[in-house]
Design a binder for these strands. Structure first.
Lengths: 185, 185
DNA sequence: GTCTATACGATGATAGAC
DNA sequence: GTCTATCATCGTATAGAC
């Protein structure tokens, strides 16, 4: 296995998706052209197509990355000895929102309404995040409020659902709040 | 003033936006071509451009219509003698969500992140709807819970904010839930 | 693997007849 | 006002040299 080669490959892919994400944040998923991404990344079109089958493939990888990033923060909370209460949990999530990621995230929602591949990614990530919230809230009920584990899991569900909803609304708010930085053009 | 002529003109415009909205619901704001709309409306490209300056103009009009439709339902609740409580209010709003409108609504969110004109429309409609929710909740606090009007308006604000957030999350959920109907293609 | 140059298709928009 | 036919532009993706 050429492990080092694979690592370099992944590094290039990351470099490309990062440039793509900046473009998406400015111009949107669809109005970003390959030319935009070549300009932003410093690479050429040929190079990009050597790492991604087509533009759809690149968009999917980028979307996955943005959404995964958002979910990452949560995992540690559930394992904590003193998990945050729901209000605190929502506050921390809200505070961690990055404006560019918020814009791209909301763009993926819009794209998901008509693009099955993107919908799959969004639904999967949303479900995953809700499950992690559920774990967080359960941990709080058990460790801080001293509920019985079984009952805790049950009563945590609607709370997690609400935290998720409020978080999504906040993400939308952030995305609409901050206008994308102007391109030099 | 040729009032009748104006009415006919508005009728045509409505016919076009309705066809456009069906296309948007299926294929999204950007992946809908003028050709798609001519096929869906039965009109020709020339006819469409006689009523709209360009595609952006058509998208804006359609977006405005979808969002206005959603706000319309609310106005009557605030005036009611027995305004619904917040939970009931949210339930009614949720029940009134149309799948196609939900998809197009979420698409406008995505578009709003990078398109100033659309952002203006979305923010305006969101603010307007939040204000109407505020009126509804205030009316409920005053007429049903018998709060004092001044205090009611104050305490209604955070409640309205939360109802709005939960409604938006529900809209997103609906938009992701229902796949667009297949095109005959 | 990365570049430059280019082919090809799609789409927004217009011209001009009726 | 509506049509058909057409143009010009832009953007994806590829070919082929290095």
């Amino acid at each position: 296995m050429p492990r080092l080669t694979d690592a370099r490959k992944e590094l290039r892919r990351a470099q490309i998706t990062e440039a793509a994400l900046r473009c998406f944040g400015r111009n949107g998923l669809e109005r970003t052209s390959i030319a935009d991404i070549t300009a932003e990344s410093g690479l050429s079109a040929g190079s990009i197509y050597a790492h991604y089958r087509d533009k759809a493939d690149l968009v999917q990888s980028s979307a996955r990355e943005v959404l995964a990033e958002r979910a990452k923060v949560l995992s540690e909370y559930a394992a904590s000895d003193t998990p945050p209460d729901p209000d605190d949990l929502l506050g921390r999530l809200t505070a961690a929102i990055d404006p560019v990621a918020a814009r791209v995230g909301v763009q993926t929602w819009g794209e998901a309404t008509t693009n099955p591949a993107i919908r799959g990614i969004v639904v999967d990530m949303t479900d995953r995040m809700r499950a992690m919230l559920h774990d967080c809230v359960t941990a709080w009920l058990v460790k801080v409020e001293h509920h019985e584990p079984d009952r805790a899991r049950e009563s945590a569900a609607p709370i997690a659902h609400r935290v998720m909803a409020l978080y999504q609304a906040q993400l939308l708010y952030t995305a609409l709040q901050s206008p994308p930085e102007e391109t030099a053009s």
